[in-house]
Design a binder for these strands. Structure first.
Lengths: 361, 361
DNA sequence: TTGAAAGCGATACCAC
DNA sequence: GTGGTATCGCTTTCAA
């Protein structure tokens, strides 16, 4: 195989001009090019294994059919990769290609990543983060249609639409699951107050109790961190040396890793799960929640759906305003703050939750 | 901000020709353009916020300074993302940009991903996989300089250099760590026989025993899978209902998730770690191994280094053969099979391993 | 129905 | 030292 064939090669082989080749291969042959020539052109293209040079096409058309994705650390961390998967699937299905640049959480690289992508003539941009968080949107993102996935503009007027999980509802439904199993004393191991996910999940938790007309016992909401050891120590604080009637009968964790820590603590204290203690995770982390012993009941983040929704909205905007710039950004479907699309989480019931122990209802 | 400035805009503003602009901005001004003009050109470029259109440059130069990375599922899975991080860091440091396409393990997308990247004029290609494995190299990869990271050509003549972890040595050093602590009865929970990582780690394990002149007890090597539940059940098989003298005093796991399962089993059986049982993981999975309770001693995969080594080799090849094609592929540094660069793993000692229990030496 | 020609934006050669 | 011009590969308009 030598250098790639060009449209000119195809034209020569088919005995026509470059224009004819272009027309036919872009589906605008009928009515412009003789049927016979069309066949010859297609044959020639096939034998030469011709695919148009995307660079030249981009230069000519001033559009590249590339969507640039800036990731804060989605690529390099173990989390949330499925947002990109969902986005990419939608893009591909519409003939777009995604290009991912990861800044590894270095905010000084934000603008340069966007600039690089813009220099490559991306038609649109998407910013994806690990974990829900406010984002200082790179200024240059406003130059092309853009969307945020798992993050939202930290400036009030929010010009860029955001697709985020409905964390409040997730927290609420997690609590409702346990409430429905008869639990009344439920603890919540939160992450930290820094990222907005934990507070929202807690908010939902409180909402559920309020709706049920039940009180949340004081000291039952612990800011613990996000990792296994944090879950372990949080659980020990709640359970170790505490008489049974004063122990929570269920613990909701702000993620699955915390839940692992809680299970480790329960094991060490000789508490059976879910007979003595129900445990819930959050995230449905891949091959963690489902393979834990016992398998974790958890609230699955709608990562794929978020990515797909964000990309769908972006591509819609692209096709609406083929060449223009700043539209007034009509609010996309969904509720919550304008410009924020909330995607619901999914309750996944497995083995780590069960009915409240007898005598604790 | 309107449309981007072009070289022509800069030229006009500075009162010179496009050629001068091009020369100056590419550092070839001295000796070609008057000092004075140079200053004016730079000023004009700055005020217009000019950056060259990368698409146009690529078309003209027939090189894009883009390295295409095809990932089997590195982006979308939680694993091995740091290979890409390491590769990207090296590429960026040399003025290259990486573009990642993830096939989500769909091999039918391999060729089309490569083709898409080739159409975009990538200067080189890298294929990255989750977990060490043989790869049926997409034919089109041979059209530009390429490299494999964490995988290797499944055809013997291996035209494409590969950078992979030294799994045999990793397994050996893991065993040596435990041997050094006095353990003599060490079990190995392997993944599956399908992926080459587990067999190689086992090989290293056996090598260490042989070098120490010690036997590996029969039944001590279990093919278990890769997940938490597999580790749990494997450990139960080794430990549950077995009299102390017949229990292994240490268990090496083929990854950290298995180790979590083993810890869960040990907890349930009332075995203290590491007093009664030492446990080792493998991978040093991010925020898993280090936050386990107890924190896991493990063999860290050199992901970043692998990515960096692969990219370094690729860029070197690019600069050596600026425009040509097929070189005869001199073997890169490293040992093992020619064209395979082995990167050593790193032993990380934490709390889950300790001296052999008294009486079991 | 077809082909010639004008760009898209930048680079590099070659006269001046 | 400088600016005109061909070229990269493709699309699209406009005459013939």
């Amino acid at each position: 195989m030598n250098r790639k064939a060009t449209a000119l090669d195809v034209a020569k082989l088919a005995g026509v001009s470059r224009s004819a080749v272009s027309l036919v291969l872009n589906g605008r042959g009928d009515g412009n090019v003789a049927k016979e020539s069309q066949v010859r052109i297609r044959e020639a293209a096939a034998t030469l294994n011709y695919t148009p040079n995307a660079i030249a096409v981009s230069l000519r058309n001033r559009r590249s059919r590339i969507i640039g994705i800036v990731s804060d650390q989605v690529v390099t961390s173990p989390f949330d990769g499925n947002i990109i998967a969902g986005a990419d699937a939608v893009a591909r299905s519409q003939g777009f290609v995604t290009v991912v640049m990861d800044t590894e959480l270095d905010e000084t690289r934000d603008e340069s990543a966007v600039a690089t992508l813009l220099d490559r003539q991306v038609d649109g941009l998407m910013y994806v983060t690990v974990g829900l968080r406010p984002l200082h949107v790179p200024l240059n993102m406003l130059r092309v249609p853009s969307v945020l996935a798992n993050c939202f503009d930290d400036r009030p007027e929010a010009g860029v639409p955001a697709v985020i999980p409905d964390e409040v509802r997730g927290g609420r439904e997690a609590a409702m699951h346990l409430l429905g199993l008869g639990h009344r004393d439920i603890a919540f191991l939160a992450g930290d107050g820094v990222t907005p996910a934990a507070p929202r999940r807690i908010q939902g938790h409180r909402d559920a109790f309020e709706a049920a007309g039940l009180p949340v016992r004081p000291g039952r909401i612990l800011e613990a961190g996000w990792d296994i050891d944090a879950g372990f120590h949080g659980a020990m604080k709640l359970l170790d040396g505490v008489a049974a009637p004063d122990r929570p009968t269920a613990i909701v964790c702000a993620n699955d890793r915390l839940a692992i820590g809680v299970v480790l603590a329960a094991n060490r204290l000789g508490l059976a799960i879910p007979q003595d203690l129900s445990i819930m995770g959050y995230d449905d982390e891949f091959r963690i929640a489902s393979t834990m012993v016992p398998a974790l009941t958890t609230m699955a983040l709608p990562l794929r759906e978020m990515g797909a929704a964000a990309m769908t909205g972006l591509l819609r905007k692209l096709s609406e305003e083929p060449e223009d710039n700043d539209d007034d950004g009509g609010a996309p479907a969904g509720h919550g703050r304008p410009g924020h699309t909330l995607v619901p989480c999914r309750l996944v019931v497995r083995e780590s939750t069960g009915p409240v122990p007898a005598g604790r209802t």
